[in-house]
Amino acid sequence: MQTWRFIDHGPRDAATNMAIDEALLMSGRPTLRLYTWSPSAVSIGYFQAIREEVNLEACKREGVEVVRRISGGGAVYHDAQGEITYSLVVPEAAVPGTVQDSCAAICSALVAGLREMGVEAVFSPLNDVVVNGKKISGSAQTRRHGVVLQHGTVLVDLDAIRMFSLLRVSAAKIADKGIAAASQRVTSLRAEVGAVDPRAVREALRKGFARVFDADLPPETLTDEEKERIPGLREKYARRQWNLQR
């Protein structure tokens, strides 16, 4: 059995959350981190055109922060009360080689965690976990210097109307998925199994990762070196130039 670090801490703002994930990627220590966002935020994929994906006016009006990730993938609404984000940092050798295969492997840990809660979750390529065909989790990945960072969302409670008032969904994407309303394609733990205690969700996710990767996950904290890197990285994620670059 291998020992990975488990970091489970309270809510942070968007720029800090992304700074912590990048600091973890830079240190490269195998780590599972669970976190939330306060205030609520939208994160967009590294390659996304922000104005095409996010209703910036609505976000500003609602006090919702917007941040660009270093990982690819799509726009995600991180509700302060209704979702849990995970990030996993591991050496490339710990997961299958390609982005697709490693994404599937890491998502299988999410599936195991959700099944702990009695949710019949399955991996849905390319990067989603679904329940009865509805998305409950989406993940994004990047790599640097032989280290993988994959992070993603688990929907605990969902206000689909609010979510899709903040996100724009392209016509091409809707056409491919074949359903007019994007909100019909998402679900949450609450919708599937009723009200859940976020602490129970976090414990279930930890168990899922521990089982699938045969890892011991003792609770730990950030190292001093990681903490020192966070303010500088946070500055990057708070900059308009970074967030509006595409």
Partner: peptide, 26 residues
């Protein structure tokens, strides 16, 4: 995948690809 480009007299003045795809290294 979205492509936005500006052409001046048959030459690419600027081009941007965007979307929710994955490309590593970014």
């Amino acid at each position: 995948l979205r492509c936005t480009l500006t052409i001046k007299e048959g030459v690419i003045a600027s081009i941007r690809f965007s979307g929710d795809f994955f490309l590593i290294p970014g």
